[in-house]
Design a protein around this nucleic acid. Structure first.
Length: 148
RNA sequence: AAAGCAAACCGUCUUGUCGCUUCGGGAAACCGGGGAGGAAAGUCCGGGCAACAUAGAGCGCCACACUUCUUAACGAGAAGGCAGCCGCGAAGAAAUUUUCGGUUGACAGAAAGUGCCGCAGAGAACUAUACCGUCUCGAGUGAAAACUCGCGAUAAGGGUGAAAACGUGAGGUAAGAGCUCACGGAUCUGUCCGGUGACGGCAGAUCGGGUAAACCUUGUGGGUUGAAAGGCCAAAUAGGUUGGGGAUUAGGGCUGCUCGUCCGAUUUACGGUGCUUAGGUAUCGUAAGGCCCCAAUGGGUAGGCCGACUCAGGUGUUACGCGAGUAACAUCGCAGAUAAAUGACAGGAGUCCCGCUUGCGGGAACACAGAACCCGGCUUAUAGGUUUGCUUUCUUU
RNA sequence: GUACCCGUAGUUCAAUUGGAUAGAAUGGCAGAUUCCGGUUCUGUUGGUUGGGGGUUCGAAUCCCUUCGGGUGCA
């Protein structure tokens, strides 16, 4: 009875699951770890664990690369949509390891990318996040540092 | 019917699944309604709104500049005037003027003053240093025509230039010249006429090149800063203030901590006493300060709320006005985000392109472009389509 | 959001406040020198003064508009 409701719920992406705080944003740019996959860059860092929303996400499209505001808006929407549909593995991982994560996707392309390509790249990035850079070990140290 | 020009408008639609944001309902799960543009853009102007400033006047700076009107306001708009250009004509000997249509105009003042006008040219500016010429007079040569020289007159002609001192014609003259006359142009003036007015007509006087997107003059307007303005609530930590309590050799360094060790060792006011002529100094007491703990409180950071979406609002009808627009009535509620929503996928329809079996198949595309406090304009970008008006061509009646 | 600045040969800069053909260095090309290359010398090439419009007799310069790039404040 619990399992059918849970995946349905997890396709949502409310405002509480997005990065809203300036402090988290500064921490991302100062201490965050970066991953590069063709036209996209992913930056992530650890944050205190929250049972409701373990993962917070943000998207960005720099004005230097894309001139038109229409294209920038569309690129951000595509990235957000791709994360929304494929965020289940990363959520499970965080709940399993009691980790909080803040992830920022940055588009580095200067022309529009189709949704299929965007989705593929984002999936690859999330898989690499959980396999290559397991953030569990780092997490505890960082948290202790922050507390102290 | 086609093409061109101008103006106005539209500027993909629809179904399902999964999402975002906001409003309403609900205890919750969830349900229902709304959700980018004509330019949201550029930020070129003008306002609303807010904070601060502000006796009055002048100078300076910036902006604007035919008239009247519209408007909350404008550098915007409407109507008109005048001027330039283009086209078809008309009048006249010519200069020039003019009907109609289209189009453009940053369109106050150069007759207040200053500056500038390269090269060329004799000369580039209140009164012109006369280059080639033209002409009178004088002298010389010569039979004469004419030529040479000299003193003068002359802006008609040539030449230079973007521009040469009103234009054309006639008279006049030694030759000329607004010197005079006719027509025309421009500027100024007017107890004149028409018009709200710009201006037009008429009469008189005058004839003074251009440049104010050179300085300037005149008139009008402008306080400054912009929603990241401004206002409200306010966690944790540190420090401020107030009150209470405690300690009074405080406090600090070395060390991960204790022990230990080292540095350092009493500020101010009042009162008593001792010393001192006095200033002062020593000591005691009281109070304040300094140290620790607790409580309260103001400012204020992160963060949140208001500002901020019902207003110079849209649509329709009627009335007024040539028009921009105004008024009355009816009706509608039509984005409100803030690391920033308005999306993704799948199917169908429409448009365009290609192929041929002429109604099928295939492929690609569907413009310009994304609100950020809100309005009124301007400018720029824009595939395709619709409507209206005008012009030209063809066909039919 | 707001206030402002700058666009000139391929490149780096000039152009006496409006005056005639927009100039210099470097670069490119050709020639000379050299066995060859470099250096040097000579000649030559190269401009929509970011685009469009206006004022003026005349615009790189003045004015309007537009495009691109950059800076300050917060």
């Amino acid at each position: 009875m619990v399992t059918p409701t849970k995946p349905r719920k997890d396709f949502t992406l409310p405002a509480s699951a997005r990065i809203k705080s300036k402090k988290v944003m500064d921490r991302l740019f100062e201490k965050g770890t970066g991953l590069w996959q063709s036209p996209f860059r992913m930056v992530f860092t650890t944050i205190p664990y929250n049972e409701e929303q373990p993962v917070r996400v943000g998207v960005s499209a720099p004005k230097r690369k894309m001139k038109k505001a229409v294209d920038r808006n569309r690129m951000k929407r595509l990235m957000r949509e791709a994360f929304r549909l494929n965020k289940q593995p990363i959520l499970d991982y965080c709940r399993q390891h009691q980790v909080g994560l803040a992830i920022l996707f940055i588009s580095q392309c200067n022309t529009l990318v189709s949704f299929r390509k965007t989705e593929d790249k984002i999936i690859i990035l999330l898989r690499r996040l959980t396999t290559e850079n397991a953030p569990t070990a780092k997490l505890t140290d960082d948290r202790n540092d922050q507390v102290l």
